[in-house]
Structure formats: structure tokens, C-alpha cells
Design a protein around this nucleic acid. Structure first.
Lengths: 333, 333
DNA sequence: GCGCGACATCGGCAATCGTCGTCATAGGCT
DNA sequence: AGCCTATGACGACGATTGCCGATGTCGCGC
């Protein structure tokens, strides 16, 4: 390891001068500066960020804590965040909590110990506890959650509106008996999507019978299972709203194995617009979350807070949009 | 920020004692230790990892540099690596290079400056340069690449064998005219897969006509396009080998839009076994890469090297396996 | 034209960030 | 006296930065 002292010696100046040359933090005689730069190049010196962080009190690192980076939705968000962060000179530490509160807490402790400059947190279920203890001590941006606290901003998606769009679309096509596959009850998103969906039905004078809704887990296999149960409970439905695309895809598979065709026998709409929604047959009509925006806005909010720690906390609400593909049609019966 | 000195003061001992209590690095009178622990708890003290890293010369951090974490294959690998690393007390810095050599180099510099303890690198194309300059200075594990160098291990998948399995499977079903959609020529994997595939054909006395192979880019849209071109160039093929699942899925979509049915009119086999391969209709027969193994083995190799820096470098070859689903059948004509 | 003080320019010393490990020391025991 | 045992003091680790000192430049008054 070559250090700044080696460079200083090699260039015949003090370490202070080397530091000032690197950081352009005060004027240095051009000739001297050149000598320093030559020494840096000759020794292939690269400053030790750990030492720098200790001294400066900032690590140029942000923590990204989410349930599962292999879920395509989070994968995209993570990608956006990593990109946006890197452009601004920040590096991202990736953490997968599986939505497990205990894991979240462990990760948070590690991240705090590592002195991250900021945190982007996609919590899953109930973690008010975690928040209360740890969050306010580091600038943070919450995804799809909010708490009232200094230092914590939120990027939210208007799930209620998304659900409403989904309902409106199906109702508009003429469907009257509609089934639903819900996500986890303790997620922030699924209940909201449902709420909006129900409102759309009500506006059309329809109601959602308890028998035509089955809760599941946001996964492919779960969607398949839920669809099976739904067929048994509510065989007369002509359309389906799945609270995310993965479950919609699972449901699609089940329908096909039963010889039912989409959209002829059953219309189907999902939520998220993951990249694989175009991959099914028929391509899935869905409510798109603005993934790129979520990531880039989260980073922006975080960076702005870093530069202005005392600003009032902000919540940014992004609008989902309906993406019509080919899995919805008017009912035949 | 509370520091070890605050704890020492609060407990009425020296900082050395506090440190030794935390790290169990020398005997401390139980009573004193208890007092120290109480102080730690009372002050909610957590040691500053940055200072610790500077002092100890290790950061408990590994860098993960890959083309794109939103590609489902890499997403899964990243997940495995993050999990395995965390269990052993390591934290992961995520970097996306897009396979761009310049970006790779920039990321590597940053990672080195941050004093990562080790690197897991899924390089994409030509980066001998990058390697030569930077790699040997940090313990590293290469995914799907190898270079001869101390300090660098490799986890490889036997792509040749995978391609061979694919070819064998199609030939075994009776196909004689087979099309291929290739990946990027400069990737490490695609040419190898092709090589194995061709060997399987040759063993059956078949040859791969140049007109029945189209190169693409490993993406969904690329696969769709390639399939279109292939239909024009080689309309008589009865089966297709796509060098990855995403392209297979694209091809599938195109076939469907042309009114062709899989596997009745065209058999199709992919490569990777991404989670969405079960999601298509029909579910995709494919050559599975052992994703979990890739991640966990990479971490193991890295940790072993960290504990034994001078050990001879190792290459670990993992075997892909055929996963039969429903996209292949004997030819009808 | 000369002498002197004010001021700008440039570089080095040393303190500092928080932790850990080595060496030193005080006390109690045999 | 000699030897443990338990703990404390202190100097790295590598970089940044406030402060001071040395040198050079300039202007002014006589």
C-alpha cells in the first residue's frame, strides 16, 4: 500500500501539499503541483477512502435495504438507484431483508456502524419499532412507506389510484363479476390497491363479494394457487385483478392448464408492469409503477437532504398508469 | 456520535479496556466487563466501522461487479452472494458495469480505494487490460472467466456441455433441421454453448448451416428480431436453440404472433433457466445454470482465499443440467 | 533612490478522526 | 525479591485541515 506520505517523499513536498493538490483545496505552485501529480502517477497512488472517511466524517456510501433484489421490481429499482448514486459519486451497499423485521434491524445496525451517509429503505411490513430507534439518526428515504420524522423523506406510489384504474378498466369493458387475488395484508401496497379497486366497482354500482377475493403472497406459485381457489369459490367471474404481475402470471398459467383462454374466457389485469409482463401470452395488461422514477427520485431526495439536513421532510407521490396490452376484453357472457 | 472514549469515561475505565471487552481480546475482570457492557448499552454505543477498518486493515466488505443486476440471472446470483456474504459478516457493494470496460475500470478504482477485502467480478467482454492492472492487487473471484494469476479464482459453468445437452435433446427427439439464436460473440458463454451444441449435431451426422444461425444480444426484443430473421433465412427448421432464455422468450412471442405453435410447429430450448422460464406458455425447456451454487461457491472461494492468501489459484467448474418442460416435442414433418 | 512595513503567496507542522495493540505499571501474592 | 494479574497510557492506521512561518512583492514616505 502506498500512502500519501510516500507520494510526498517522492515529490519532495509535505503531505499537506499532496493533499491540497489532489483536492484542489488551495493554490499550489503549478510546478510543484506537477511534480506531485507525477509522483502520484509514478507510484500508482490512490488515496485510501477509509482514512478519508474517518477524517471527513462522510463515506460517500448509501445503504439500500429492500426485501429481495431478485424480485424484478426491486431489481429495477436497485439498478436505477445504483446508477443515479454512482453518477453523484456514491456507492451502494445492497441488503436483502426478505421483509423480515429482525433482519432489517441487523442490517440497519451494520449500515449505521459503517457510517453510511444515507439510507434508502423499502421496508415491507411492520417496523415502526425499527424506525423509531434507528432511522432518525441517518438521513433516509422510505419507499412506499412514510413516517413523520425529521430526516426522513418518502417516495410513494399512489396505489389507491392504481387500483382504481384497474377497476375502472375492467368495469369499462363491461365486466360485472370480477375476482381479485390480493397480496399480503401487511404490505403497504396491496390493501391500498384493493381499496382503489373497490371504489371503482362501487362507483359502477358493483360490489366485491368476499368469496371472489383470495389473498396470496405476491409470488408466481401463490398466484397459481389462489386462482385455483378462486375458480372453486367464484366460478362465474369473467375478469380478474391480480395485485401484482407475478401472481397474474401464475393465475394465467393455471387458467391455461384448465383450458380457459385469456382474454376470451377471462380478462386479467396485473400490477407493477415488470419486464416479463410482455413475455406472457397474451401480453399482460397491467398497472405500471414508474420504476425508473422511483429510483431516481429516491436518490435525488436523499442527496438534497444530505446537502440540506434541516429541510422539512418531503413526500413525493408518483402516479401509476394503465398499460393496455392483450389480456383484457369485454366479457362474452 | 458516541465513541469508545465516551463509553470508557462512563464506565470509569480506559478505552483499551472497553475495546478488549468488545473484542474479547484479553481477560477483563467480570465485574469491570459488566460495567463496560452496561455503559455500552446505556449510551447505545456502536463502534465506528470506518475507524476500525482503518486500524485493522480490513473492511469486511466485498465488491460485486456485474453487467446488470436487473438481468434475472445476475439478480439471482447477486442475491445468493449477498446472503452468503452477510452470514459470514461481509457486506456487499453493488456495481453495474453494463459490460462497459471503461465503467468496469472506474468501478474497480473506487472499490480499491474503498479497500474492499475481496471482489467478485462477472466481466463481460474484453478486459484483459483491466485485469492486468488492477485485479491482482485484491483477492478476486471471476465468474465465467479465468485468467492465470495469483490471487484470482474462478467459478465457471461448463457452457460447452450445456450446449451439448441442448443439441442432444433436440437431436434425440428427431429434429434434423435446427435453428440457432446466438448471444454476443464477445461474451464468454455464447460461443462455448454453440460449440457444444454443434458437437452434438455432428455426433448425429448433422451440420449447422450458416443460414440457420442468427446472432443476437441476449435480450428479449433481440430474440424476437432474430427469430423473424431466422424464419426468413431458414423456413424449414423444426427446432430452435436460443442461447439464453430471454431470447427464447422473444422468439416464442414472435412465433405466436405468426400463428405458429410451440412445440407442435417448432420445438424450442433455452439456456439459463431464469425464474420466468416457467412463466411462458408452454413452459420453456431449458439448460439450467446452477445459480445458487454459482453465488455460494464464489463467496466460499473468496473467503477461503482471504484466510489463505497464498494458496494456489483454483477454478471450479459447475455443470448445467437439462430441465425438460413443455416446449420440445418430436418434429411433425 | 532607498528603507521599511503591509500584505499576498506558498509550504510545512501537527492535531484530529475512532479504534486497536503493545508496552508499561500498580498492586497482590508467594 | 520475583511473578502474576488486571488495567492504563500511548502511538499507530492514512488522510485532512487550521494555523503558523518563510519568502517575495509592492507601495509609500523621506
Amino acid at each position: 500500500m502506498t500512502t500519501i506520505a510516500d507520494v510526498a517523499r517522492h515529490a519532495g513536498v509535505s503531505v499537506a501539499t499532496v493533499s491540497h493538490v489532489m483536492n484542489r483545496t488551495r493554490h499550489v505552485e503549478p510546478e510543484t503541483a506537477e511534480r506531485v501529480r507525477a509522483a502520484i502517477a509514478a507510484l500508482r497512488y490512490s488515496p485510501n477512502s477509509v482514512a478519508r472517511s474517518l477524517r471527513r466524517g462522510e463515506t460517500k456510501t448509501i445503504g439500500l435495504l429492500l426485501p429481495d433484489n431478485s424480485n424484478p421490481f426491486f431489481a429495477s429499482v436497485a439498478r436505477q438507484i445504483e446508477d443515479a448514486g454512482f453518477i453523484s459519486g456514491y456507492t451502494v451497499i445492497l441488503c436483502n431483508s426478505d421483509g423480515n423485521a429482525e433482519k432489517e434491524e441487523r442490517y440497519l445496525s451494520v449500515l449505521m456502524a459503517k457510517q453510511i451517509d444515507g439510507l434508502i429503505f423499502a421496508g415491507s411490513s411492520d417496523h415502526a419499532r425499527v424506525f423509531a430507534r434507528l432511522l432518525p439518526s441517518v438521513p433516509a428515504v422510505l419507499l412506499d412507506r412514510e413516517i413523520q420524522s425529521v430526516n426522513v423523506d418518502s417516495v410513494l406510489v399512489d396505489h389507491v389510484h392504481g387500483g382504481y384504474l384497474a377497476g375502472k378498466h375492467l368495469v369499462g369493458l363491461g365486466h360485472r363479476k370480477i375476482g381479485v387475488i390480493g397480496g399480503p395484508r401487511d404490505s403497504s401496497s396491496s390493501p391500498a390497491r384493493l381499496r382503489g379497486f373497490v371504489r371503482a366497482l362501487e362507483e359502477a354500482g358493483l360490489e366485491l363479494r368476499p368469496s371472489s377475493i383470495v389473498d396470496s403472497d405476491y409470488h408466481f406459485a401463490g398466484g397459481r394457487l389462489a386462482m385455483e381457489q378462486l375458480m372453486a369459490q367464484a366460478p362465474d367471474i369473467t375478469a380478474l385483478f391480480a395485485c401484482n404481475d407475478l401472481m397474474a402470471m401464475g393465475a394465467l398459467t393455471l387458467l391455461r392448464s384448465r383450458g380457459l383462454r385469456v382474454p376470451d374466457d377471462m380478462s386479467m389485469i396485473g400490477f407493477d408492469d415488470i419486464p416479463y409482463a410482455v413475455t406472457t401470452w397474451p401480453p399482460l395488461t397491467t398497472i405500471a409503477q414508474p420504476v425508473e422514477k422511483i429510483g431516481t427520485r429516491a436518490v435525488s431526495l436523499l442527496l438534497e437532504r444530505l446537502s440540506e439536513p434541516e429541510a422539512p421532510s418531503r413526500r413525493e407521490v408518483l402516479a401509476p398508469v394503465l398499460v393496455e396490452r392483450e389480456s383484457c376484453a369485454p366479457p362474452r357472457r
